[in-house]
């Protein structure tokens, strides 16, 4: 169940959109940030707010890279695996993450803190290899820097 305020603000967003569907991605993203991922319950709530069926919401949700339809950890680590980051050695970063966190791509750490997901180009090619942790950007990542980042992100 989402708080009444959130529901109101989402209904407001839908009411001011040209069509309800135009607001669909916004609604899904808001619900995702509330639940951590887009749960089945959230899909149902999105459907209700948007006047769509759950299937119609899922048709959209499953298309987008940054909508999670499976449980994720508290913070998602996205490691860019596209060409500029490849040039800059993202594979080393990934390898380091696997070792350090004991997970492979797609998995969540045992403590439920991090989920590691490779992603496409984030437009930080000038600062590659790049990654985000819980939405915060990090560029020119090295294995050493990575340790610090994880430390910091674990704390706040």
């Amino acid at each position: 169940m989402i708080p009444e305020e959130l529901k109101k603000s989402l209904q407001q967003r839908v009411a001011t959109a040209v069509t309800a569907r135009e607001a669909a991605v916004d609604v899904m993203k808001e619900l995702q940030s509330h639940y951590g991922w887009l749960t089945d319950e959230a899909v149902g709530e999105a459907a209700e707010i948007l006047g769509l069926s759950t299937l119609q919401v899922d048709e959209l949700a499953t298309f987008y890279e940054m909508i999670y339809r499976r449980p994720v950890g508290k913070k998602v680590i996205h490691v860019c695996d596209s060409i500029s980051c490849w040039c800059a050695g993202f594979e080393r970063i990934m390898e380091h993450l696997r070792k350090k966190l004991g997970v492979v791509e797609g998995q969540t750490t045992a403590d439920g803190m991090f989920t590691v997901i490779p992603c496409c180009c984030m437009g930080i090619c000038g600062d590659s290899p790049a990654m985000t942790v819980g939405g915060n950007f990090y560029g020119s990542v090295t294995p050493e820097k990575l340790d610090e980042i994880l430390e910091k992100e674990r704390k706040n």
Partner: peptide
Amino acid sequence: LSAGRYICGEETALINALEGKR
């Protein structure tokens, strides 16, 4: 604001995305 997918940059896919379609 989109939710990440390269094909959304193709102009007709973008129009569908903006309309809230696949």
